[in-house]
Amino acid sequence: MAFQIGSALLDACVLAVLSAGDTYGYQLTQQIRNVVDVSESTLYPVLRRLQKDGAVEPYDIPFQGRNRRYYRLTPRGQELCAAYRLEWVTFKEKIDSLLVEESE
């Protein structure tokens, strides 16, 4: 793809996926990779950063004799996600106004 996905956009994507439901690292990575072409190793730092900012919190659920670490949004993460969504709409409209040809 010609367009690069920046770290803010990646944060927004992770928050949006988590706002649809809690999930674990592997699944989260697959879900994002289904849509955008990011390396498998980029998601861990994103998750860790969001965790440190208090937007995402981990919790463990036993699965096949081990603990699987799930992630969920905190109230702060939900706020952040809403703010990103709003920003994205204005950003998208602006780029669209430059990029997309008017159709009759």
């Binding site: 861990y44 950063r49 900012d53 937007a55």
Partner: peptide, 17 residues
């Protein structure tokens, strides 16, 4: 990638809106 993000999180930890 882990070390980079750890180093940058010390200087500017967030690019949130």
């Amino acid at each position: 990638t882990i070390l980079n993000s750890n180093a940058s999180s010390l200087t500017n930890s967030s690019n949130a809106p």
